[in-house]
């Protein structure tokens, strides 16, 4: 058991330290490590995990660490894996935070960051477009998507602030309502 926990710690530490650019890059890495090499979880369990990690809130890396940790070694496994996956980010970012402000004061760095800020817009936009491509183009999805964009952009233009929490909850409730309406309609036919 102890050996398994140590191995969980080390594997998730590596995953936390070497996955750049978000959770999806690490799914393949996790599968290779836990399904093919160690055989601690089955292919089906892994697919379940991906579905769960993607539909529950929070980073995919943390969700899968907790899930795989629990499946392999219970609560202790879950706690150790989650901690291990967070430590590298925490350490790196904490160090950066100590000198970031001074760093930005250097002339060339400040020039560079003017360009980088433009890149951030590009990165967010291209991430959004990629997700847009993968979403099913049903009438419901398109209406929700366009209304959210229209609402958020106009709120910003008119300097009104509505929390993102509201959008998420309202759309969730609309999704639930649409589902039950459909069911009701089927019942009537």
């Amino acid at each position: 058991m102890m050996k398994k926990i140590l191995s969980l710690f080390w594997t998730f530490f590596k995953i936390g330290a070497f996955t750049f650019g978000g959770g999806y890059a690490m799914i393949a890495l996790l599968e290779n490590e836990f399904v093919e090499k160690k055989k601690w979880i089955t292919k089906n369990e892994f697919l379940d995990m991906v579905a769960i990690a993607e539909s529950t809130p929070g980073p995919v890396a943390v969700n899968s660490a907790t899930y795989i940790g629990y499946k392999t070694a219970g609560f202790k496994g879950a706690a150790v894996s989650t901690l291990a996956v967070c430590i590298p980010s925490f350490a790196v970012i904490f160090c950066i935070s100590l000198f970031f402000e001074q760093f930005l004061k250097l002339t060339y760095v400040s020039y560079a960051f003017r360009g980088i800020q433009v890149c951030v817009i590009y990165l967010i936009l291209s991430a959004g477009l990629k997700m847009l491509k993968n979403i099913k183009k049903t009438a419901f999805n398109i209406v929700i998507l366009l209304s959210v964009i229209a609402a958020m952009v106009s709120c910003s233009v008119f300097s009104v602030s509505i929390s993102s929490v509201c959008y998420i909850l309202i759309c969730g409730v609309l999704g639930t309502a649409a589902f039950f309406l459909k069911k009701l309609k089927k019942g009537c036919d």
């Binding site: 998507l145 959210v148 609309l174 999704g175 649409a178």
Partner: peptide, 16 residues
């Protein structure tokens, strides 16, 4: 059903 409403919302929020 709840998540089916949240998914397009999140994409919209990112694009917005």
């Amino acid at each position: 059903a709840f998540l089916s409403g949240v998914r397009p919302c999140v994409v919209g929020m990112i694009l917005a």
